[in-house]
Amino acid sequence: MRIALGSDHGGFHLKQAIKEYLDSRGIINHDFGTYDAGAVDYPDYARAVAEAVARGEYDRGILCCGTGIGVCIAANKVPGIRAALCHDTFSARAAREHNDANILTLGGRVVGPGLALEIVATWLDAEFSGGRHARRVAKISAIEDVYSCRKGQGGKEG
């Protein structure tokens, strides 16, 4: 498994803990930044990670910001991305099993590193269940197709 990582300044320290955890499990990962706690704009890092996952260069991604909300919103703008903000292990498991979430987002000011690493482990170890959930994920992709630039101009049917 290959994981793309990214954060803004609010999620920097949490991302560092996650990177250490991934390394300890022997999981290949690449850090798309930021590389210190200086103020930066979260959409830049969310976009870089989301595009790398959407292109298939990485199997999944993990993004951190202060709340996890901003990076989640930004990542979900990239076609093919299903980013999920999780604050607990139940949601992390469901995000993978039911929604085939390919990016996990976390808030460095919301969850502590201990819980965050449990969430990451749960999300990494869970697999998409398919079945009725595949039909639902396909419907999400169909909505995305209608509004993305892949169909017509400006997201409108051509």
Rank of each mutant, 00 (worst) to 15 (best):
2 R>N: 15
4 A>F: 05
10 G>M: 04
12 F>E: 00
13 H>E: 13
17 A>M: 10
17 A>W: 03
18 I>G: 00
20 E>P: 03
21 Y>A: 10
24 S>F: 08
24 S>K: 11
26 G>C: 10
30 H>W: 12
33 G>Y: 07
35 Y>T: 07
39 A>G: 12
40 V>S: 09
40 V>N: 10
41 D>Y: 09
41 D>P: 04
42 Y>D: 00
42 Y>L: 06
46 A>E: 02
47 R>N: 14
49 V>R: 01
49 V>C: 05
50 A>K: 01
51 E>R: 12
54 A>G: 10
55 R>K: 14
60 R>H: 15
61 G>W: 00
62 I>M: 05
66 G>Q: 08
70 G>D: 02
72 C>Q: 10
72 C>W: 02
73 I>Q: 02
73 I>C: 07
73 I>K: 03
74 A>N: 03
76 N>V: 04
77 K>T: 04
78 V>F: 02
79 P>G: 06
81 I>K: 01
84 A>H: 02
85 L>Q: 11
85 L>Y: 06
88 D>G: 06
89 T>R: 11
90 F>E: 15
90 F>Y: 15
93 R>T: 11
94 A>C: 14
94 A>Y: 13
96 R>S: 03
97 E>A: 14
101 A>V: 08
101 A>R: 00
105 T>Q: 05
106 L>C: 08
106 L>N: 02
107 G>T: 04
109 R>Y: 11
110 V>M: 15
114 G>E: 15
115 L>F: 09
116 A>E: 02
116 A>C: 06
117 L>M: 10
117 L>Y: 05
121 A>C: 07
125 D>C: 09
125 D>I: 04
127 E>K: 11
127 E>V: 12
128 F>Q: 03
129 S>Y: 11
129 S>I: 03
130 G>Y: 07
131 G>S: 15
131 G>I: 05
131 G>N: 14
131 G>Y: 08
132 R>K: 13
132 R>V: 12
133 H>T: 06
135 R>C: 03
136 R>Q: 09
137 V>G: 00
140 I>Q: 06
140 I>W: 07
141 S>R: 15
141 S>H: 14
142 A>F: 09
143 I>Y: 10
143 I>N: 07
144 E>Q: 12
145 D>C: 13
148 S>R: 07
149 C>P: 13
151 K>Y: 12
153 Q>W: 14
158 G>P: 11
